[in-house]
Design a protein around this nucleic acid. Structure first.
Lengths: 354, 354
DNA sequence: CTATATGATGTAAACGATTACAATATACCG
DNA sequence: CGGTATATTGTAATCGTTTACATCATATAG
C-alpha cells in the first residue's frame, strides 16, 4: 500500500504539497496540482485515515448503539440521526449489543479510545449508574428513548409515564373496565426504564379511575413478540379475558393478538389490544394496532443535535418530545362515543387506517 | 485528555513500560505494574485508539453495509457476522446506505482509508462493475445475498435462480395455472440482482410447464411492502385474479395480502401468495406466508469467514448455500396432493405453523 | 534596480501509541 | 569475586498524516 511519501516522490514534490492537494486547502500551482493528481491516480493512492485522524484528533464518526437491528422501532430514529449527522459531515455507524454487557462495554471503549467522536445510546442497562454518570460526563454521549436511572444524563425521548397515562386513559374512555398489562419483567426493569415508567403511568390511571388491577392480568413477560405470545397463552388458560390489554410495545401487542387468534379469539371482537411505539408493523398487521406514536425521526434529529453540542463542549440537556395516540383496528369502544376521563392530557389523538 | 506520556511521568517510568502494562505483553516487575496502574487510575487514562491503530496498521473493526435497518431480512445475517467476528476479536459496525450512492461511496472510503479492516456489502448497486471489481480486488470486501454483476467477487448467498424455480415449482405443484409475479423494476434490476435472478427462474418454470405468463400479471413494483400494496391495487382493477402470486420478497407479499384483504379478497381463499426470505413477519403475519428460507445466520458466518480470509491475504471465492421452501398458510393446494412437476430439485420443503 | 508583498513549496514537528534494540540491574554459577 | 544469563526498563524509531514555519521564487511598486 502506498503512502503520501510515495506519491510525493513520484510527483517530485514534498509530502506537504501532496497533502495540500489532497485537502484542497491552500493554494497550489495548477501544474503542480496536476502532477500530484497524476501520481495519485497512477498509484491508486488513497490517504490513510488513521494517520489523518490521529493528527486531527477527530474521526468525524459517531456511533449509535442499539440492542438489535431486528427491533423495528429504531429505524426512523436512526434516519433522523443520519440526516443531521450528514449535514455536519459526520458518518454514522451502528453497533448492536444484543443485550450483552460485554458488547456494550466494547462500544464504550470505542468512545474512550476516541475511535469515534461521540455516541448515541438507545440500549443502555449500564453496568452501574455511577459509571454511566462518569462516562456521560467525560465523553460526548447522549441517550435516546431509554431513560437513564440518573436524570442528569443528556437525553431525548418522550414522557413515557404520561404517554402510558394517555394510552390507558384512552382504553378507559372506550368503556373498558378490566384492563391487563404486558410489561418488562424484573430483569428488564433495569434494562428498559421506559417499560417501568409506562407501567407506572398505567397503574396511576387505573387507580384514579377506581378500576381494580388484577394481579393475574399483569404479564411481566418482556417486550418482544414472544413476550406477547406467552402472555396470550397464560391469558387463555385463565377464566375470562380482560376487556382490553395495554402492551408496552407493539411487538408484544402483535404476539398477543396473533396467539389469541390461534386460540380462537378475535381482536378487537373479544378483547381490545393497544401497543406502544407505532412501528411499521403496527400499521400493517391485521388488525392494525392502536398504539402510541413517538416522533421518532425528530427524536433522532434532536439526539444528534445534542450530541454535536456535547462534542463542541457544551452541556447536555434533557428533552421530552410530544407523543400521540394512534387509533386503529385493534381497539373498539364499548360506548357510543368516548367520554371524558381522568388523566388524559391534551395529547393529540389521530385515527389512521392501515 | 491525558496521554501515555502523562501516565509515564506520573508513574515515574518510561512510556514503553506503560505500554507494556497496557498490553500485558512483556514482563514487568510487580511493583512497577502497580505504580503504573495507579497512575492510570488516578488520571482516568485510556489509551488513544487512533495512535494504536496507526502503529499497528489495523483497527480490528469491520463494516457491514446494508440499505436500511428497517429491512428485517438482514438481522439474522448480521448476527452470524457478529458471532464469527467476535471469535476473532473483531468489532462489527453497521452502515446504512438508504440506497444513496453518495453514502455508499462514503463507506467505500472508510475501507480505502483503512478506518476499518474490511467490509461486507449487502446493499450494492455499485457505481460501475469495473469499479466494484477493482475495489474488491484491492481491498478485503465480500458481498452477501446481493450478487454482483461480475461473478468473480467474493460472495455468499443462495442460488437465487434455482430458489425461484423451486418456489414457482411449488406453486405449480399445488395446481395453480395462472401465476403472477411481483419483482424489482427496471431501476431495481441494477440494484437488486437477486430479484432479477428470481424473475429468471420463475419464468423458466412457467415456460417448462407450458403455463402462459400474462403481461398483466407481472408487477414491476419493487420489493417493499408498498410495492406489494401497489400490485394489489392494480390487480383488483383487472378482471379476475391470478390463481397465485410469487412475490420476490416477503415484504411485498405482505403488502399484497394486506391490500387484498382491504379490498375484500382473502388469502389463500381467493388467491395463493408466496414470498421470499422467510423474514420474522412472514411467520407472524395472519395468514402466515409461504416463503423461501435462506440460511441467514449461516450466510453471515460464512461471509465473515471469507472476509477474514481476504484480510489474511487469501483469494476470495463464491459460496452458494442451500435454500428451503417453507409452507405456511398463504398458499393452498388445488389438488388433493401435490404431484411431481418440472424444475423442482430436491430442495427441502418444510411445513411450519406460525 | 531594489525593496517588498505575495505565491508556491519544502522542512520538520507534531498527533499518541507500539516495539526493536540498547542499557542497566539482578541473579546465578563456578 | 568475576562472568554470564536473565529480568526489567529506557531510548528512539516508526506508523501516515497535517500544518506552523521557513524558504525561495516571482511579481509589483517605487
Amino acid at each position: 500500500m502506498y503512502t503520501i511519501k510515495d506519491v510525493a516522490k513520484r510527483a517530485g514534490v514534498s509530502v506537504a504539497t501532496v497533502s495540500r492537494v489532497l485537502n484542497g486547502t491552500e493554494t497550489v500551482r495548477e501544474q503542480t496540482r496536476r502532477q500530484v493528481e497524476e501520481a495519485i491516480e497512477a498509484l491508486q493512492y488513497s490517504p490513510n485515515g488513521l494517520g489523518r485522524n490521529l493528527r486531527r484528533l477527530e474521526t468525524k464518526k459517531i456511533l449509535v448503539v442499539l440492542s438489535t437491528i431486528s427491533n423495528q422501532f429504531h429505524s426512523r430514529i436512526v434516519r433522523g440521526i443520519e440526516d443531521r449527522a450528514a449535514e455536519h459531515g459526520y458518518t454514522v455507524l451502528i453497533g448492536t449489543t444484543r443485550d450483552r454487557l460485554e458488547t456494550l462495554l466494547r462500544y464504550f471503549e470505542m468512545i474512550q479510545t476516541r475511535e469515534v467522536d461521540g455516541a448515541i445510546f438507545m440500549s443502555t442497562h449500564f453496568c452501574k449508574p455511577e459509571e454511566a454518570d462518569f462516562l456521560t460526563q467525560a465523553y460526548p454521549i447522549v441517550c435516546a428513548c431509554e431513560p437513564m436511572p440518573d436524570g442528569r444524563i443528556p437525553y431525548v425521548g418522550i414522557d413515557d409515564e404520561q404517554a402510558a397515562r394517555d394510552a390507558a386513559g384512552y382504553l378507559v374512555s372506550c368503556g373498558h373496565k378490566r384492563i391487563g398489562l404486558i410489561c418488562g419483567g424484573k430483569l428488564t426493569r433495569d434494562t428498559y426504564g421506559s417499560s417501568y415508567l409506562r407501567e407506572k403511568g398505567f397503574r396511576k390511571v387505573m387507580e384514579e379511575n377506581g378500576l381494580p388491577l388484577l394481579e393475574a392480568d399483569i404479564f411481566r413477560e418482556g417486550l418482544t413478540y414472544n413476550s406477547g405470545k406467552r402472555a396470550a397463552q397464560q391469558m387463555v388458560r385463565q377464566e375470562g379475558l380482560p376487556d382490553a390489554v395495554f402492551a408496552c410495545s407493539d411487538a408484544a401487542a402483535l404476539g398477543l393478538i396473533r396467539e389469541l387468534y390461534t386460540n380462537g379469539y378475535t381482536v378487537p371482537g373479544d378483547i381490545s389490544v393497544m401497543g406502544f411505539d407505532n412501528t411499521a408493523m403496527s400499521e400493517v398487521f391485521y388488525p392494525s394496532v392502536t398504539t402510541v406514536s413517538q416522533p421518532q425521526y425528530e427524536i433522532g434529529c434532536q439526539a444528534m443535535e445534542l450530541l454535536l453540542a456535547r462534542i463542541a463542549g457544551k452541556e447536555g440537556e434533557r428533552r421530552l418530545l410530544p407523543h400521540e395516540i394512534i387509533c386503529r383496528e385493534s381497539t373498539r369502544s364499548k360506548k357510543a362515543k368516548p367520554e371524558s376521563f381522568a388523566a388524559c392530557t391534551n395529547v393529540p389523538i389521530s385515527t389512521s387506517e392501515a
